[in-house]
Design a protein around this nucleic acid. Structure first.
Length: 859
RNA sequence: GGGGACGUGGCGGAACCGGUAGACGCAGCGGACUUAAAAUCCGCUUUCCGAACAGGAAGUGUGGGUUCGACCCCCACCGUCCCCACCA
């Protein structure tokens, strides 16, 4: 018996797949299409077990669908722009393009070694000019449609790296890379008008029935549509220049308007800036607001500060009532109108502000059970339900009715309008980076911002950029930057900002169907999109996944895509974690340097070198800092790829985290060897004529039941359950060994093995090929159809029914599958054991659940 | 502060639609093989009472409820994790 040797077996079958081009999507096929895609990786240069799990899931799905008769498109690419390449360039003086290309080559090899059924003929990287040039072309179209624009906005500015940072790159108020306190800076930036699609992006979520609810909910909250009233407060005295119409505020609580005690505007509000020009105190206050940190902790502890402008506005429902106008740090310029009215009794922030500055607190919502004369808000605002009082024409209404009435009155008076406001902001896509897709625009003194003519695309990144100094090297490369204006020919300058890399990933899935097409999105995209199953991490729930949904719609409106939604099905997989080990002194020790000893049920860790005891920590996300990273390549050297793939899919449900353990992979490795042993010991199929062997019948039943169960588990992404069923089937095979078996059993075993090879193929494709070949199977198992099951065999012909008396299990009876209630009743009452227990009691009720259970209720 | 998810043996987890709780794996224990160890193979393994592979009791975070029957549905509470957050 030959021991299974993955080092010999695995490369051989990968070569065979490549030779036969089994992984290519067939453009001429008439089979139904299936587009399987996993989020493409950033080419860091090293494959992580987390990658291995992600791509193994996608691969199981792709191979399964192919076996079920679909024409599968399963491509791979590289999300290749980004900061790590610039860091490498800055630290080691390497060319980011070369560095990235080297990483891609290394990772491609590692991915290929995983035995993924990927159509490599469609591979591309976002840093290829062939890709990003076409992205520039798409951008020009969006620009022409008015979906791209430039706007001065307040951004997170890293003063050390001299670049804008995305919100997610700001950690506790500091730049994630420089650790410098982030500044709020006004800068003119490119934006994409994602808010034009806010309603559609929100309402479209309902149709995504194969997306996790969690992701849909996160997007819903992120878009954050709220309905309310935009309302103008006119000035009591002469209005400041440009504010003849008053100050426009936004509120979701127009029902509390009679509880108003002030109007507050953001420090960045145009009115505040105008006042600052003539009021030193106001200017100082605004400057102070801008220095405040943006971190969670800073905001949490930040006091509500204000500056009374001295201006007074008139209450919209009572012309004799005047309210002060404050500038306040807790009002945000980029939500709503940048101005609010304060109702301290019914808003906690307004209450804190009012208490600090001695502003009135007037209750207008009476909570149930409270008395109008005695109800007073003290330290906590009342935001719950109630009846409106102290509020003129709104008195006596409930909150919802009062909101409607207040909006109707404001609209009738021409002072306001019921409206929806979104939390979603337009997408700022400018980055002051040198390793990104250049934004195809030229700045001309005379003509303004001019698009690069399409014929001049791609705007290529220059080679030899200097990354050794902070800031954007493109801005320093004058020979690249200085160009004639395409409109008037005068000397002009290129836009030196590059796109946020999320732009690169917002449309890449539409490129794969025609990866080499002249047009950015070729005609085959119409056939393949949407992606049938997309797989990736939950961390992209509101970033990448929202941007891709927006881009798909924007390009649809441009006539370039035929679908509304890019991803019909989405699966978000969990991470791979690992225990952590550290010395008493605190240093983290990598798993490879640790020896685990079990003493009874307790586990202890020792450092291999020196033998000193270590502290075992909870499983955590693998990270360099905690040194708990495991490289797939090292594991594959010992146990082979198939065992590695099997393990990361078998130990936990796929959406949950899985803890990497050596014992776990060893378990998978055992299964690989057990499977192989069954094939290796199987004699050629015998002639089974005659002989009804009960062992053969039992094995066949298990086989067909397993095919059914594995098929259903793979349909619903329950990989762990599928592997458990395979374990069971292998256990049955071992219980009915070929040695000494009669012809009927040998034949049954042959049927089982033929099914097993195909059931295992999505998980452990190399092993499956080896088994298939050993069995004399036709062609490659990678191209073989999925096994069918016999319904009759998958069902037992007899069921064991537990018998409960008053809900407690007291015995069991055997009954034919599908037996009628009367028949089961007879069987139960005829059972001597049951009869004995029923002596002296009356059966009040006998409940039979077909093929499941019997419950006797006594009285 | 707002929103959401999840609590099942020593561990990861399973349980279709409300119908035998603990599949399968890991760890552990016992045995076989071996000079020995590793590997491999066989068996046991929710807890408690019990000599028992007799029988019984308890049991899916806690407390209630609905039901012939609840891990599953409802209410309240406790705990853990995730997302968002001065969003008016």
């Amino acid at each position: 018996m030959a021991r299974y040797d993955p080092k010999l077996v695995e490369p051989r079958w990968r070569a065979a797949w490549a030779e036969a081009s089994v992984d290519r999507a067939d453009p001429a096929s008439h089979a139904p299409k299936y587009y399987a895609l996993e989020m493409f990786p950033y080419p860091s240069g090293k494959l992580h077990v987390g990658h291995a799990r992600n791509y193994a899931m996608g691969d199981v799905n792709a191979r399964f669908r192919r076996a079920r008769g679909f024409n599968v498109l399963h491509p791979m690419g590289w999300d290749a722009f980004g900061l790590p390449a610039e860091n490498a360039a800055a630290e080691r003086g390497v060319d980011p393009a070369e560095w990235t290309a080297g990483n891609i080559a290394a990772m491609r090899d590692e991915l290929k070694r995983l035995g993924l059924a990927i159509d490599w003929s469609r591979e591309f990287a976002t840093c290829d000019a062939e890709y990003y040039g076409r992205q520039q072309a798409l951008f020009l179209k969006l620009w022409a449609r008015g979906l791209a624009y430039r706007k001065e906005g307040v951004v997170n500015w890293d003063p050390v790296d001299m670049t804008v940072l995305a919100n997610e790159q700001v950690i506790d108020g500091r730049g994630w890379r420089s650790d410098a306190p982030v500044e709020r800076k006004k800068l003119t930036q490119w934006f994409l008008r994602i808010t034009d699609y806010a309603d559609e992006l929100l309402d479209g979520l309902a149709a995504l029935d194969r997306w996790p609810d969690k992701v849909k909910l996160m997007q819903e909250n992120w878009i954050g549509r709220s309905r309310g009233l935009e309302l103008s407060f006119t000035f009591a005295g002469p209005a400041p220049t440009g504010f003849a119409g008053g100050v426009k505020v936004y509120t979701t609580r127009p029902d509390t308007l009679y509880g108003a005690s002030f109007v507050a505007i953001a420090p960045d509000h145009p009115l505040a800036e105008q006042l600052a020009a003539g009021d030193a105190a106001a200017a100082a206050f605004i400057a102070r607001c801008r220095t405040g940190g943006t971190s969670e902790a800073a905001i949490e502890s930040a006091e509500k500060l204000g500056h009374d402008t001295g201006l007074r506005v008139v209450h919209p429902f009572d012309s004799k009532w005047q309210l002060p106008v404050w500038i306040s740090n807790f009002v945000l310029m980029d939500y709503g109108t940048g101005a609010i009215f304060g109702c301290p009794a019914h808003d906690q922030r307004d209450l804190e502000f009012a208490r600090r500055y001695g502003l009135p607190v007037k209750e207008v919502v009476l909570p149930p059970g409270e008395d109008a004369a005695s109800f007073h808000v003290k330290l906590e605002a009342w935001t719950g339900p109630g009846r409106i009082f102290n509020s003129g024409f709104l008195d006596g209404l409930d909150i919802e009715a009062a909101k409607a009435a207040a909006i109707a009155r404001a609209e009738a008076d021409g002072r306001g309008q019921g409206t929806a406001v979104y939390r979603l902001r337009d997408w700022g896509v400018s980055r002051q980076r040198g390793w990104g897709c250049p934004i195809p625009a030229i700045h001309c003194q005379a003509c303004g911002v001019v698009p690069v003519p399409e014929a001049d695309l791609p705007v290529r990144l220059p080679s030899g950029l200097d990354f050794s100094k902070p800031g954007n090297p493109l801005a320093r490369d004058l020979s690249w930057k200085q160009v004639p204006c395409p409109r008037c020919g005068a000397p002009a300058e290129r836009e030196t900002d590059t796109f946020d890399t999320f732009v690169d990933s917002a449309w890449y899935f539409a490129r794969f169907p025609d990866a080499h097409a002249e047009a950015p999105i070729g005609p085959a995209a119409g056939e393949w999109l949407p992606v049938d199953q997309y797989i990736g991490g939950i961390e992209h729930a509101v970033l990448h996944l929202l941007y891709a949904r927006f881009m798909t719609r924007a390009l649809r409106d441009e006539g370039l895509m035929a679908v509304d939604e890019p991803f019909a099905g989405l699966f978000t997989q969990g991470m791979v974690t690992h225990e952590t080990y550290r010395r008493q002194s605190g240093e983290w020790i990598e798993p490879a340097a640790v020896r685990i000893a079990t003493e009874g049920a307790t586990r202890r860790a020792y450092e291999i070198a020196g033998g000193q005891p270590l502290v075992i920590g909870e499983p955590e996300k693998m990270s360099k800092s905690k040194r708990n990273v495991v490289a797939p390549a090292d594991i594959a050297d010992t146990y082979g790829i198939d065992a590695t793939r099997l393990f990361v899919l078998s130990d936990s449900p796929p959406e949950r985290d899985v803890q990497w353990t050596t014992a776990g992979v060893e378990g998978a490795w055992r299964l690989v060897n057990r499977i192989w042993a069954e094939f290796d010991s199987q004699p050629p199929a015998a002639d089974a004529s005659g002989a009804q062997d009960p062992a053969a019948v039992a094995l066949r039943r298990t086989t067909h039941r397993t095919i059914k169960a594995v098929t259903e588990a793979l349909e619903t992404f329950r990989f762990n359950s599928a592997v458990a069923r395979i374990h069971e089937l292998v256990g049955q095979l071992r219980a009915a060994p070929a040695a000494g078996a009669g012809p009927a059993l040998i034949t049954a075993r042959a049927e089982t093995l033929a099914a097993l090879a195909r059931l295992v193929a999505p998980f452990s494709p190399h092993l499956a090929e080896e088994c298939w070949a050993r069995l004399g199977g036709e062609g490659l198992v990678a191209a073989a159809p999925w096994p069918d099951y016999d319904r009759a065999l998958a069902e037992d012909d007899e069921k064991i029914l537990p018998v409960q008396i008053d809900g407690k299990r007291r015995g069991e009876v055997r009954a034919p599958t599908g037996a009628s209630e009367e028949r089961v009743r007879e069987i139960v009452l005829a059972d001597p054991d049951i009869a004995r227990r029923l002596e002296g009691v009356t059966v009040r009720k006998l409940i039979v659940v077909k093929d499941r259970i019997v419950n006797l209720v006594t009285g």
